[in-house]
């Protein structure tokens, strides 16, 4: 196992390096730069700007300098927001995005997974159909519609919650709900489906035949075996949601990392694009490693190291 993890960590570093390189190439390949503006500044001023941010260095040097910075955990200064650094953005934005994301994930699991189990146990009964309907609406109506509707109802009409911004717990509710809907729907559908698979398997039938109660069967065998796809789905989901979601952060004016990332691409804020990509990429690789380790615990038969034929 230790050897396997070592292998994976090595692969992760290689992947991160490829990711950085591809992103670096892509962002320099597309038109526009950080100082492209509707009003063109005189050439001399553009030269000053380029000099200040080392954009007049040859690309390979910029690339190597950047990699050097990453190795020292210095992601560089922002071009769009002078005086601020990409490390500042992460230090400020990540806790906010992560807080919202964790709440949303807990919410979606707490509701979605039991809903999925109930659906499966009551297949094609009203419980199942209701869950399905909610889930379908959850995935079909995107957050950019849900969020303004929530805001309209609960902030403007009922005055129960503040419309937007970030600070106290009341401001967490609407964005968390809006953010939770899609994973909630996914969890409930995935759970239902894999529960149905598991329930029809012979070992469950055996367990039942041995006289185990319905509850015990469900918990001890079915859920444990059905949770695999959920775990798979959770890996990238946690990485994606904890590093921020643009639409939700934009609509609710939340100072998270998701908005920063989209702005950075819009603004061609090179260091920020790269920095946040590296941050997200590292997070994703770690999550997926954890997922694979969890596989081993869930089903000890799984051999990640490959089979000798």
């Amino acid at each position: 196992m230790a050897r396997y993890i070592l292998q994976r960590v090595f692969a992760a570093f290689v992947a991160l390096w490829i990711l950085t390189t591809v992103t670096f190439v892509l962002m320099h390949a597309i038109p526009g730069g950080p100082f492209t503006r509707e009003r063109n500044v005189p050439e001399a001023i553009m030269r000053n700007l380029d000099a200040k941010y080392h954009l007049n260095d040859p690309l390979w040097k910029q690339y190597l300098d950047y990699l050097g910075g990453v190795a020292r955990f210095d992601l560089g200064p922002s071009f769009k927001f002078p005086g601020q650094t990409v490390n500042d953005f992460i230090r400020r934005g990540f806790p906010v995005s992560a807080e919202l994301g964790i709440i949303a994930i807990i919410l979606s699991m707490a509701v979605g997974i039991p809903a999925g189990i109930i659906s499966a146990l009551r297949q094609n009964k009203w419980q199942d159909n209701t869950t399905m309907l909610v889930a379908i609406v959850g995935v079909s109506v995107p957050s950019f519609i849900i969020a303004p509707v929530l805001m309209y109802v609960f902030a403007l009409k009922l005055h129960w919650l503040p419309a937007a911004m970030w600070g106290d717990w009341k401001q967490v509710i609407m964005p968390a709900v809006a953010l939770a809907l899609l994973p909630l729907a996914t969890f409930s559908r995935l759970m239902r489906s894999s529960m149905l698979d598991v329930i029809s398997q012979d070992y469950i039938k055996t367990a039942r035949a041995k006289g185990l109660s319905e509850l015990a069967v469900t918990w001890r065998h079915a859920v444990k075996n059905a949770i695999m796809p959920i775990v798979t789905y959770l890996g990238p989901l946690i990485a994606a949601i904890l590093t921020g979601t643009f639409v939700i952060e934009q609509i609710f004016a939340i100072p998270g990392l998701g908005r920063q990332f989209v702005w950075s691409v819009n603004n061609r804020d090179y260091t920020t694009i790269l920095g946040l990509t590296v941050f997200y990429g590292a997070f994703l690789l770690i999550m997926n490693l954890i997922v694979d380790i969890i596989y081993g615990f869930l089903d000890p038969r799984i051999q990640l190291t490959g089979r000798k034929e």
């Binding site: 303004p148 902030a155 005055h159 419309a163 911004m165 609509i251 004016a253």
Partner: peptide, 18 residues
């Protein structure tokens, strides 16, 4: 100075007196 750039959010904030 409230830092909001989404227009509909801005409008909701204003109409709800924030």
């Amino acid at each position: 100075f409230n830092l909001i750039d989404d227009q509909n959010t801005s409008l909701t904030m204003w109409e709800s007196g924030q």
